[in-house]
Design a protein around this nucleic acid. Sequence first.
DNA 1: TGATGCGTATGATCTAAGTCATAAGAGAAC
DNA 2: GTTCTCTTATGACTTAGATCATACGCATCA
Lengths: 197, 197
Amino acid sequence: MIPENLLEEYNARIVNLSKDTIIFNQGKPAYYYFQVLEGEVKMAHYNEDGQEFIQGIFNNGMSFGEPALFGEFTYPCSAVTIKDTSIAKMRSEDFFKLLENNFEIHKKFNNILSKRLRYKGIILNEISSYPAAHRIQTVLKYLRHKYGQEQEPFEVPFTRQQIADMTGLRVETVIKTIKQLSQKDELNIHDHKVVLK
Amino acid sequence: MIPENLLEEYNARIVNLSKDTIIFNQGKPAYYYFQVLEGEVKMAHYNEDGQEFIQGIFNNGMSFGEPALFGEFTYPCSAVTIKDTSIAKMRSEDFFKLLENNFEIHKKFNNILSKRLRYKGIILNEISSYPAAHRIQTVLKYLRHKYGQEQEPFEVPFTRQQIADMTGLRVETVIKTIKQLSQKDELNIHDHKVVLK
DNA sequence: TGATGCGTATGATCTAAGTCATAAGAGAAC
DNA sequence: GTTCTCTTATGACTTAGATCATACGCATCA
Protein backbone atom coordinates (compact mmCIF):
# COMPACT_ATOMS: atom_id res chain seq x y z
CA MET A 1 0.00 0.00 0.00
CA ILE A 2 2.31 2.73 1.26
CA PRO A 3 5.82 2.60 -0.31
CA GLU A 4 8.78 2.02 1.98
CA ASN A 5 10.30 5.47 1.68
CA LEU A 6 7.09 7.07 2.89
CA LEU A 7 6.70 4.58 5.71
CA GLU A 8 10.13 5.67 6.84
CA GLU A 9 9.51 9.37 6.29
CA TYR A 10 6.37 9.23 8.47
CA ASN A 11 8.02 7.34 11.30
CA ALA A 12 6.61 3.86 10.85
CA ARG A 13 8.25 1.21 13.00
CA ILE A 14 8.84 -2.36 11.88
CA VAL A 15 7.71 -5.11 14.22
CA ASN A 16 8.42 -8.82 13.88
CA LEU A 17 5.79 -11.20 15.21
CA SER A 18 5.68 -14.97 15.43
CA LYS A 19 2.72 -17.03 14.25
CA ASP A 20 -0.51 -16.76 16.27
CA THR A 21 0.33 -13.41 17.85
CA ILE A 22 -2.60 -11.09 18.57
CA ILE A 23 -2.00 -7.64 17.04
CA PHE A 24 -5.15 -6.07 18.42
CA ASN A 25 -8.39 -7.26 19.96
CA GLN A 26 -11.98 -6.53 18.99
CA GLY A 27 -13.45 -3.71 21.05
CA LYS A 28 -10.14 -1.89 21.51
CA PRO A 29 -9.53 1.66 20.20
CA ALA A 30 -7.33 2.21 17.14
CA TYR A 31 -4.14 4.27 17.40
CA TYR A 32 -2.02 2.90 14.56
CA TYR A 33 -1.94 2.28 10.86
CA PHE A 34 -0.74 -1.27 10.07
CA GLN A 35 0.76 -2.73 6.93
CA VAL A 36 1.95 -6.29 6.32
CA LEU A 37 5.55 -6.45 5.05
CA GLU A 38 6.00 -10.21 5.19
CA GLY A 39 3.75 -13.04 6.35
CA GLU A 40 -0.02 -13.15 6.83
CA VAL A 41 -2.65 -11.77 9.18
CA LYS A 42 -6.30 -12.72 9.64
CA MET A 43 -9.04 -10.48 10.95
CA ALA A 44 -11.83 -12.33 12.69
CA HIS A 45 -14.85 -11.94 14.93
CA TYR A 46 -15.08 -14.19 17.94
CA ASN A 47 -18.52 -14.87 19.35
CA GLU A 48 -19.25 -15.64 22.99
CA ASP A 49 -19.08 -19.38 22.37
CA GLY A 50 -15.65 -19.00 20.76
CA GLN A 51 -16.93 -19.48 17.24
CA GLU A 52 -14.80 -17.64 14.74
CA PHE A 53 -15.81 -15.72 11.64
CA ILE A 54 -12.92 -14.67 9.39
CA GLN A 55 -13.56 -11.24 7.90
CA GLY A 56 -10.39 -11.03 5.88
CA ILE A 57 -6.89 -12.32 5.24
CA PHE A 58 -4.09 -9.82 4.64
CA ASN A 59 -0.59 -10.35 3.27
CA ASN A 60 2.27 -8.78 1.29
CA GLY A 61 1.94 -5.01 1.32
CA MET A 62 -1.71 -4.89 2.38
CA SER A 63 -2.92 -2.57 5.08
CA PHE A 64 -5.33 -3.74 7.74
CA GLY A 65 -7.35 -2.26 10.58
CA GLU A 66 -7.35 1.21 9.01
CA PRO A 67 -11.17 1.37 8.75
CA ALA A 68 -11.21 1.79 12.55
CA LEU A 69 -8.94 4.84 12.15
CA PHE A 70 -11.00 6.35 9.34
CA GLY A 71 -14.36 5.53 10.85
CA GLU A 72 -13.34 6.41 14.40
CA PHE A 73 -14.73 3.27 15.97
CA THR A 74 -13.17 0.54 18.08
CA TYR A 75 -11.96 -2.56 16.27
CA PRO A 76 -14.92 -4.72 15.30
CA CYS A 77 -12.55 -7.69 14.84
CA SER A 78 -9.35 -9.04 16.26
CA ALA A 79 -6.18 -9.28 14.15
CA VAL A 80 -3.96 -12.34 14.56
CA THR A 81 -0.88 -13.44 12.62
CA ILE A 82 -1.32 -16.81 10.92
CA LYS A 83 2.36 -17.05 9.91
CA ASP A 84 5.54 -15.48 11.24
CA THR A 85 4.95 -11.93 10.14
CA SER A 86 6.61 -8.54 10.02
CA ILE A 87 4.47 -5.43 9.98
CA ALA A 88 4.93 -1.68 9.71
CA LYS A 89 3.16 0.37 12.35
CA MET A 90 2.55 4.11 12.05
CA ARG A 91 0.92 6.49 14.49
CA SER A 92 -2.51 7.69 13.44
CA GLU A 93 -1.43 11.39 13.33
CA ASP A 94 1.48 10.60 11.04
CA PHE A 95 -0.78 8.52 8.85
CA PHE A 96 -3.30 11.32 8.32
CA LYS A 97 -0.49 13.81 7.69
CA LEU A 98 0.83 11.44 5.04
CA LEU A 99 -2.59 11.24 3.38
CA GLU A 100 -2.98 15.00 3.37
CA ASN A 101 0.34 15.35 1.57
CA ASN A 102 -0.19 12.48 -0.89
CA PHE A 103 -3.48 12.68 -2.74
CA GLU A 104 -2.82 9.60 -4.87
CA ILE A 105 -2.24 7.43 -1.83
CA HIS A 106 -5.28 8.86 -0.15
CA LYS A 107 -7.29 8.00 -3.24
CA LYS A 108 -5.80 4.52 -3.20
CA PHE A 109 -7.27 3.98 0.25
CA ASN A 110 -10.72 4.88 -1.05
CA ASN A 111 -10.05 2.33 -3.74
CA ILE A 112 -9.21 -0.53 -1.42
CA LEU A 113 -11.95 0.29 1.09
CA SER A 114 -14.41 0.24 -1.80
CA LYS A 115 -13.10 -3.09 -3.05
CA ARG A 116 -13.46 -4.63 0.37
CA LEU A 117 -16.97 -3.25 0.58
CA ARG A 118 -17.73 -4.90 -2.73
CA TYR A 119 -16.37 -8.24 -1.55
CA LYS A 120 -18.39 -8.07 1.65
CA GLY A 121 -21.52 -7.23 -0.29
CA ILE A 122 -20.98 -10.21 -2.55
CA ILE A 123 -20.37 -12.58 0.34
CA LEU A 124 -23.35 -11.18 2.22
CA ASN A 125 -25.57 -11.86 -0.74
CA GLU A 126 -24.06 -15.34 -1.15
CA ILE A 127 -24.52 -16.32 2.45
CA SER A 128 -28.07 -15.11 2.61
CA SER A 129 -29.27 -16.44 -0.72
CA TYR A 130 -27.31 -19.47 -1.89
CA PRO A 131 -26.68 -23.06 -0.76
CA ALA A 132 -23.41 -24.22 0.75
CA ALA A 133 -21.76 -25.44 -2.46
CA HIS A 134 -22.23 -22.08 -4.16
CA ARG A 135 -20.96 -20.13 -1.17
CA ILE A 136 -17.82 -22.20 -0.95
CA GLN A 137 -17.10 -21.89 -4.65
CA THR A 138 -17.55 -18.12 -4.56
CA VAL A 139 -15.13 -17.75 -1.66
CA LEU A 140 -12.57 -20.05 -3.27
CA LYS A 141 -12.83 -18.19 -6.57
CA TYR A 142 -12.29 -14.93 -4.72
CA LEU A 143 -9.25 -16.33 -2.92
CA ARG A 144 -7.76 -17.54 -6.18
CA HIS A 145 -8.21 -14.03 -7.56
CA LYS A 146 -6.68 -12.53 -4.45
CA TYR A 147 -3.63 -14.78 -4.66
CA GLY A 148 -3.36 -13.98 -8.37
CA GLN A 149 -3.54 -17.59 -9.51
CA GLU A 150 -6.20 -17.19 -12.15
CA GLN A 151 -4.55 -19.35 -14.82
CA GLU A 152 -2.79 -22.37 -13.32
CA PRO A 153 -4.49 -24.82 -10.99
CA PHE A 154 -4.81 -23.19 -7.59
CA GLU A 155 -4.00 -25.16 -4.48
CA VAL A 156 -6.14 -23.52 -1.83
CA PRO A 157 -3.86 -22.57 1.09
CA PHE A 158 -6.56 -22.96 3.73
CA THR A 159 -7.87 -25.73 5.90
CA ARG A 160 -11.50 -26.86 5.77
CA GLN A 161 -11.94 -25.17 9.13
CA GLN A 162 -10.73 -21.83 7.77
CA ILE A 163 -13.02 -22.13 4.75
CA ALA A 164 -15.86 -22.86 7.18
CA ASP A 165 -14.94 -19.75 9.17
CA MET A 166 -15.01 -17.63 6.02
CA THR A 167 -18.35 -18.94 4.74
CA GLY A 168 -20.21 -19.26 8.02
CA LEU A 169 -20.58 -23.01 7.56
CA ARG A 170 -19.49 -25.90 9.81
CA VAL A 171 -16.35 -27.92 9.16
CA GLU A 172 -18.34 -31.09 8.52
CA THR A 173 -20.53 -29.31 5.99
CA VAL A 174 -17.46 -27.93 4.21
CA ILE A 175 -15.79 -31.34 4.13
CA LYS A 176 -18.89 -33.07 2.81
CA THR A 177 -19.68 -30.36 0.28
CA ILE A 178 -16.13 -30.20 -1.08
CA LYS A 179 -16.20 -33.97 -1.45
CA GLN A 180 -19.41 -33.70 -3.46
CA LEU A 181 -17.96 -30.92 -5.60
CA SER A 182 -14.94 -33.07 -6.41
CA GLN A 183 -17.26 -35.96 -7.31
CA LYS A 184 -19.13 -33.64 -9.65
CA ASP A 185 -15.68 -32.76 -11.03
CA GLU A 186 -16.02 -29.08 -10.17
CA LEU A 187 -12.68 -29.14 -8.35
CA ASN A 188 -9.98 -31.63 -7.36
CA ILE A 189 -8.73 -32.99 -4.08
CA HIS A 190 -5.04 -33.89 -4.24
CA ASP A 191 -3.62 -35.42 -1.14
CA HIS A 192 -6.38 -33.87 0.97
CA LYS A 193 -5.71 -30.39 -0.47
CA VAL A 194 -8.42 -28.54 -2.37
CA VAL A 195 -7.24 -27.72 -5.90
CA LEU A 196 -9.18 -25.49 -8.29
CA LYS A 197 -8.55 -26.23 -11.93
CA MET B 1 -22.13 14.59 2.48
CA ILE B 2 -20.97 17.32 0.11
CA PRO B 3 -22.33 20.79 1.00
CA GLU B 4 -24.57 22.53 -1.53
CA ASN B 5 -22.15 25.28 -2.51
CA LEU B 6 -19.54 22.70 -3.53
CA LEU B 7 -22.10 20.61 -5.40
CA GLU B 8 -22.84 23.72 -7.40
CA GLU B 9 -19.22 24.72 -7.83
CA TYR B 10 -18.37 21.30 -9.28
CA ASN B 11 -21.28 21.22 -11.71
CA ALA B 12 -23.63 18.80 -10.02
CA ARG B 13 -27.08 18.60 -11.57
CA ILE B 14 -30.28 18.11 -9.60
CA VAL B 15 -32.62 15.39 -10.80
CA ASN B 16 -36.14 14.68 -9.55
CA LEU B 17 -37.32 11.10 -9.64
CA SER B 18 -40.62 9.51 -8.75
CA LYS B 19 -40.92 6.46 -6.49
CA ASP B 20 -39.63 3.14 -7.90
CA THR B 21 -37.34 4.69 -10.48
CA ILE B 22 -34.15 2.80 -11.28
CA ILE B 23 -31.10 5.07 -10.97
CA PHE B 24 -28.58 2.50 -12.15
CA ASN B 25 -28.47 -1.25 -12.66
CA GLN B 26 -26.07 -3.84 -11.29
CA GLY B 27 -23.32 -4.66 -13.78
CA LYS B 28 -23.27 -1.18 -15.32
CA PRO B 29 -20.17 1.07 -15.24
CA ALA B 30 -20.10 4.10 -12.92
CA TYR B 31 -19.73 7.62 -14.33
CA TYR B 32 -21.36 9.76 -11.66
CA TYR B 33 -21.28 10.67 -8.02
CA PHE B 34 -24.77 10.59 -6.48
CA GLN B 35 -26.15 12.25 -3.38
CA VAL B 36 -29.69 12.13 -1.99
CA LEU B 37 -31.17 15.60 -1.42
CA GLU B 38 -34.70 14.52 -0.54
CA GLY B 39 -36.41 11.13 -0.43
CA GLU B 40 -34.95 7.65 -0.15
CA VAL B 41 -32.99 5.18 -2.26
CA LYS B 42 -32.30 1.48 -1.76
CA MET B 43 -29.37 -0.46 -3.15
CA ALA B 44 -30.08 -4.12 -3.74
CA HIS B 45 -28.82 -7.27 -5.39
CA TYR B 46 -31.24 -9.20 -7.54
CA ASN B 47 -30.58 -12.88 -8.04
CA GLU B 48 -31.60 -14.86 -11.12
CA ASP B 49 -34.86 -15.94 -9.51
CA GLY B 50 -35.71 -12.31 -8.72
CA GLN B 51 -34.94 -12.64 -5.03
CA GLU B 52 -33.80 -9.33 -3.59
CA PHE B 53 -31.12 -8.61 -1.04
CA ILE B 54 -31.05 -5.02 0.24
CA GLN B 55 -27.48 -3.84 0.77
CA GLY B 56 -28.32 -0.40 2.04
CA ILE B 57 -30.89 2.37 2.37
CA PHE B 58 -29.82 5.95 1.71
CA ASN B 59 -31.57 9.21 2.52
CA ASN B 60 -31.09 12.89 3.43
CA GLY B 61 -27.65 14.02 2.38
CA MET B 62 -26.13 10.56 1.99
CA SER B 63 -24.04 9.61 -0.99
CA PHE B 64 -24.49 6.27 -2.72
CA GLY B 65 -22.83 4.25 -5.45
CA GLU B 66 -19.50 6.03 -4.98
CA PRO B 67 -17.62 2.80 -4.08
CA ALA B 68 -17.92 1.85 -7.76
CA LEU B 69 -16.17 5.11 -8.67
CA PHE B 70 -13.42 4.69 -6.10
CA GLY B 71 -12.93 0.98 -6.67
CA GLU B 72 -13.26 1.20 -10.45
CA PHE B 73 -15.69 -1.67 -10.76
CA THR B 74 -19.16 -1.94 -12.24
CA TYR B 75 -22.09 -1.54 -9.89
CA PRO B 76 -22.52 -4.68 -7.80
CA CYS B 77 -26.09 -3.60 -6.96
CA SER B 78 -28.94 -1.69 -8.50
CA ALA B 79 -30.16 1.61 -7.02
CA VAL B 80 -33.90 2.28 -6.92
CA THR B 81 -35.88 5.11 -5.34
CA ILE B 82 -38.34 3.95 -2.69
CA LYS B 83 -39.97 7.37 -2.35
CA ASP B 84 -40.24 10.38 -4.62
CA THR B 85 -36.65 11.53 -4.51
CA SER B 86 -34.39 14.31 -5.67
CA ILE B 87 -30.70 13.62 -6.14
CA ALA B 88 -27.56 15.54 -7.04
CA LYS B 89 -25.46 14.00 -9.79
CA MET B 90 -21.85 14.96 -10.47
CA ARG B 91 -19.47 13.73 -13.15
CA SER B 92 -16.71 11.46 -11.88
CA GLU B 93 -13.92 13.85 -13.04
CA ASP B 94 -15.48 16.77 -11.19
CA PHE B 95 -15.92 14.62 -8.12
CA PHE B 96 -12.25 13.62 -7.98
CA LYS B 97 -11.18 17.20 -8.60
CA LEU B 98 -13.37 18.23 -5.67
CA LEU B 99 -11.73 15.64 -3.42
CA GLU B 100 -8.26 16.73 -4.43
CA ASN B 101 -9.08 20.29 -3.43
CA ASN B 102 -10.92 19.43 -0.21
CA PHE B 103 -8.96 17.15 2.07
CA GLU B 104 -11.56 17.17 4.84
CA ILE B 105 -14.28 15.99 2.50
CA HIS B 106 -11.99 13.38 1.06
CA LYS B 107 -11.31 12.17 4.58
CA LYS B 108 -15.04 12.15 5.28
CA PHE B 109 -15.48 9.66 2.45
CA ASN B 110 -12.93 7.35 4.07
CA ASN B 111 -14.99 7.74 7.20
CA ILE B 112 -18.29 6.72 5.67
CA LEU B 113 -16.83 3.90 3.58
CA SER B 114 -15.27 2.56 6.77
CA LYS B 115 -18.53 2.79 8.65
CA ARG B 116 -20.36 0.92 5.93
CA LEU B 117 -17.63 -1.70 5.99
CA ARG B 118 -18.14 -2.05 9.69
CA TYR B 119 -21.89 -2.47 9.30
CA LYS B 120 -21.44 -5.10 6.60
CA GLY B 121 -18.96 -6.98 8.76
CA ILE B 122 -21.40 -7.00 11.64
CA ILE B 123 -24.28 -8.19 9.49
CA LEU B 124 -22.07 -10.81 7.86
CA ASN B 125 -21.16 -12.16 11.26
CA GLU B 126 -24.80 -12.06 12.36
CA ILE B 127 -26.13 -13.85 9.34
CA SER B 128 -23.52 -16.57 9.49
CA SER B 129 -23.54 -17.17 13.21
CA TYR B 130 -26.85 -16.25 14.82
CA PRO B 131 -30.47 -17.40 14.70
CA ALA B 132 -33.20 -15.39 12.99
CA ALA B 133 -34.43 -13.49 16.07
CA HIS B 134 -30.96 -12.14 16.80
CA ARG B 135 -30.35 -11.13 13.19
CA ILE B 136 -33.60 -9.22 13.02
CA GLN B 137 -32.97 -7.42 16.29
CA THR B 138 -29.46 -6.41 15.19
CA VAL B 139 -30.74 -4.97 11.92
CA LEU B 140 -33.59 -3.13 13.63
CA LYS B 141 -31.23 -1.71 16.24
CA TYR B 142 -28.94 -0.54 13.47
CA LEU B 143 -31.85 1.11 11.63
CA ARG B 144 -32.97 2.88 14.77
CA HIS B 145 -29.43 4.22 15.15
CA LYS B 146 -29.34 5.24 11.50
CA TYR B 147 -32.62 7.12 11.80
CA GLY B 148 -31.34 8.71 14.99
CA GLN B 149 -34.24 7.51 17.15
CA GLU B 150 -32.23 6.10 20.01
CA GLN B 151 -34.37 7.52 22.83
CA GLU B 152 -38.07 7.46 21.96
CA PRO B 153 -39.91 4.37 20.81
CA PHE B 154 -38.97 3.73 17.20
CA GLU B 155 -41.62 2.81 14.69
CA VAL B 156 -39.74 0.80 12.11
CA PRO B 157 -40.44 2.33 8.69
CA PHE B 158 -40.08 -0.96 6.80
CA THR B 159 -42.36 -3.78 5.79
CA ARG B 160 -41.74 -7.36 6.89
CA GLN B 161 -40.67 -8.06 3.34
CA GLN B 162 -38.01 -5.35 3.44
CA ILE B 163 -36.71 -6.61 6.76
CA ALA B 164 -36.55 -10.08 5.22
CA ASP B 165 -34.58 -8.68 2.28
CA MET B 166 -32.12 -7.01 4.64
CA THR B 167 -31.57 -10.08 6.82
CA GLY B 168 -31.61 -12.78 4.18
CA LEU B 169 -34.66 -14.41 5.76
CA ARG B 170 -38.10 -15.18 4.27
CA VAL B 171 -41.13 -13.01 4.91
CA GLU B 172 -42.93 -15.76 6.79
CA THR B 173 -39.94 -16.29 9.04
CA VAL B 174 -39.73 -12.56 9.76
CA ILE B 175 -43.45 -12.37 10.53
CA LYS B 176 -43.36 -15.37 12.83
CA THR B 177 -40.16 -14.32 14.56
CA ILE B 178 -41.33 -10.74 15.16
CA LYS B 179 -44.56 -12.12 16.60
CA GLN B 180 -42.52 -14.28 18.99
CA LEU B 181 -40.32 -11.33 19.93
CA SER B 182 -43.40 -9.26 20.77
CA GLN B 183 -44.74 -12.14 22.88
CA LYS B 184 -41.44 -12.23 24.74
CA ASP B 185 -41.92 -8.48 25.17
CA GLU B 186 -38.71 -7.62 23.35
CA LEU B 187 -40.58 -5.23 21.06
CA ASN B 188 -44.12 -4.10 20.37
CA ILE B 189 -46.48 -4.47 17.45
CA HIS B 190 -48.86 -1.51 17.21
CA ASP B 191 -51.41 -1.75 14.49
CA HIS B 192 -49.22 -4.18 12.53
CA LYS B 193 -46.20 -1.86 12.76
CA VAL B 194 -43.03 -2.98 14.50
CA VAL B 195 -42.16 -0.62 17.35
CA LEU B 196 -38.92 -0.79 19.31
CA LYS B 197 -39.16 0.53 22.84
C1' DT C 1 -68.54 -1.75 -5.73
C1' DG C 2 -66.10 -5.19 -6.99
C1' DA C 3 -61.55 -6.50 -8.59
C1' DT C 4 -56.64 -6.39 -8.00
C1' DG C 5 -52.65 -6.24 -5.36
C1' DC C 6 -49.93 -5.87 -1.32
C1' DG C 7 -48.90 -6.74 3.44
C1' DT C 8 -49.77 -9.49 7.38
C1' DA C 9 -50.86 -13.88 9.40
C1' DT C 10 -50.77 -18.96 10.41
C1' DG C 11 -50.46 -23.70 10.05
C1' DA C 12 -48.39 -28.27 7.66
C1' DT C 13 -44.62 -30.23 5.64
C1' DC C 14 -39.89 -30.58 3.85
C1' DT C 15 -34.97 -30.21 3.70
C1' DA C 16 -30.31 -28.31 4.00
C1' DA C 17 -27.27 -27.76 7.24
C1' DG C 18 -26.08 -28.25 12.11
C1' DT C 19 -24.97 -31.39 15.86
C1' DC C 20 -22.97 -35.39 17.79
C1' DA C 21 -20.17 -39.42 17.84
C1' DT C 22 -16.40 -41.77 16.23
C1' DA C 23 -12.15 -42.72 13.72
C1' DA C 24 -8.00 -42.47 11.16
C1' DG C 25 -3.93 -39.91 9.12
C1' DA C 26 -0.11 -36.39 9.78
C1' DG C 27 2.78 -33.48 11.97
C1' DA C 28 4.75 -31.48 16.25
C1' DA C 29 6.33 -32.14 20.79
C1' DC C 30 8.35 -34.68 24.42
C1' DG D 1 8.73 -44.06 19.54
C1' DT D 2 4.86 -42.64 21.99
C1' DT D 3 1.68 -39.01 23.02
C1' DC D 4 -0.93 -34.93 21.76
C1' DT D 5 -3.27 -32.04 18.79
C1' DC D 6 -5.11 -30.75 14.47
C1' DT D 7 -7.23 -31.98 10.21
C1' DT D 8 -9.89 -34.82 7.33
C1' DA D 9 -13.56 -38.05 7.06
C1' DT D 10 -18.21 -40.34 7.52
C1' DG D 11 -22.58 -41.72 9.22
C1' DA D 12 -26.98 -41.02 12.32
C1' DC D 13 -30.09 -37.74 14.06
C1' DT D 14 -32.11 -33.22 14.93
C1' DT D 15 -33.76 -28.75 13.87
C1' DA D 16 -34.28 -23.95 12.22
C1' DG D 17 -35.88 -21.97 8.60
C1' DA D 18 -37.75 -22.53 3.78
C1' DT D 19 -41.63 -23.76 1.14
C1' DC D 20 -46.37 -24.14 0.20
C1' DA D 21 -51.14 -23.27 0.82
C1' DT D 22 -54.62 -20.49 2.46
C1' DA D 23 -56.87 -16.44 4.40
C1' DC D 24 -57.91 -11.85 5.76
C1' DG D 25 -57.46 -6.65 6.14
C1' DC D 26 -56.72 -2.52 3.65
C1' DA D 27 -55.78 0.69 -0.09
C1' DT D 28 -56.42 1.88 -4.80
C1' DC D 29 -58.53 2.40 -8.95
C1' DA D 30 -61.43 1.49 -12.77
